[in-house]
Design a protein around this nucleic acid. Structure first.
Lengths: 247, 247
DNA sequence: CGTAGCTTTGATGTAGGTCAAGAAATGTGG
DNA sequence: CCACATTTCTTGACCTACATCAAAGCTACG
């Protein structure tokens, strides 16, 4: 069932996909591959890398700095497209690493392009998803630049919850989160030690618990208010302006 | 002469544009508008905003936070596309403000789409430019997350130099830079006071002078080495993988 | 059941923030 | 071309959020 794939689920939240469109989508899921936790799907400087659709598990994309530290740019969850940009460019400019064991569908550039031309609405939907990803990166930039450690941490955890809910992997109560505190630190531009203190504070205030691979919301509304979370950047206010595509 | 427009100049650095392609490009420059310094081209929540090609002057795109501070996401210089994303989405999720008096060409969504379908290579080139913009945002994220104030500041000033050189507005010696220290601060996630101290340090080390609206490089190579600047993210290693487009 | 990676906590250090106030620029109207 | 106002720049004194270092206690899994 194509409509059971996380990608179909996510895109459906935004455009109603027809039966033939779902079939095209399924067609992209032919080359199944898996990676072990810690494995690299793409690394900086790699030439001719392919794109992937993440079917299960979590992934992080990051950049390494000369001094050995790294900055995680985004996490990816089932239904996300990985490395769309590396189809456009000769060499990848960042790394993509499996956080957990994962299942992906490898997508050849040509297959993707032909899928887009047979189904322009699908192209539009994927473009929408890509734009949403970009909006998320911008939001992270804003968070790291202008928000406190406490706010940033809460924002990230709230955002992940919202994204997971779209693909049915989170409830209002919470979700499974396989990230270590080190990874949170690398994503938020903080030290792991400080993340730990922030998480304690969140727990002590009864707002949210991050433990044993689970995020559990204590008082969702108070949390949202406390850190000024506004999910507008994820919503993108309904469907596209128009349903034509670049084609 | 279309090939004299900053956009044509920038795209030419990456794909050789044919005569008819240049003509299509010129066609996009019909609706000329200007804005005064400080004016808003687009603001958060605005519906149905258009896209613009910046012909002259500088622009900043930023997000406002509830507490009144702001984070500048990127500066734009002549030849840059503004608000490409807002063609895709109903409402803009960020503000775009003129830093200086500017001249732009307003581009209707339909004109852009039809230009793309008559000239797929042009579409490819614009997509390339958009991807490069995204890579720059990622690089800012990395900078704010993991680099010191000193490094970040130098990086931004180096990046702007590289971008300006592409459109003929900078030399190896330096360039005209209309940004105030407040704007640098808003872009770099720092306070204006601290920016000032960093600029003094850069000056005292003989690396770079930022004064009276000009950036003048003292010792370019030493600066690059000192802050670990790697312009790879701007180069994107040559032309696209392939010259077909989404069409 | 041992060892390697996580988490937690305390003690201490520092980059960069905030406040304040004066000096240069820059702009505006006359 | 000048006088005044406004924005920018610059510097000093002080403060705080977060980093770093160090050392236990957990978990988990080979």
């Amino acid at each position: 069932m194509a409509q059971d794939s996380p990608l179909a689920r996510k895109l459906s939240a935004f455009i109603r996909l027809s039966e033939p469109e779902l079939t095209v989508l399924t067609g992209l899921h032919r080359r199944r591959r898996s990676f072990r936790a810690g494995g690299d799907l793409v690394h900086q400087g790699q030439a001719d890398s392919s794109a992937y659709i993440l079917a299960s598990g979590w992934v992080a994309s990051y950049k390494l700095l000369p001094d050995g530290t790294r900055q995680i740019v985004d996490f990816h969850i089932p239904g996300d497209f990985l490395g769309l940009r590396s189809i456009l460019f000769r060499t990848a400019d960042h790394n993509i690493e499996a956080v957990t064991n994962i299942e992906v569908s490898e997508v050849q550039a040509n297959d993707l392009l032909s899928a887009f031309s047979t189904s322009p609405r699908l192209a539009t939907a994927v473009l929408w998803a890509a734009s949403r990803d970009e909006a998320m990166v911008v939001e992270h930039l804003v968070g790291i630049g202008r928000r406190s450690a406490f706010e940033r941490t809460a924002h990230l955890l709230l955002e992940l919850g919202a994204r997971l809910k779209l693909v049915g992997l989170a409830s209002t109560a919470g979700y499974a989160c396989p990230l270590s505190q080190y990874m949170l630190a690398d994503a938020l531009g903080l030290s792991a030690v400080h993340i730990n203190r922030v998480l304690r504070e969140l727990r002590e205030e009864g707002l949210l618990t991050f433990q044993r691979g689970r995020v559990i919301f204590g008082d969702f509304d108070r949390l949202v208010a406390r850190v000024g979370y506004d999910k507008a950047y994820l919503d993108h206010d309904g469907p596209l302006l128009r349903e034509t595509t670049l084609a």
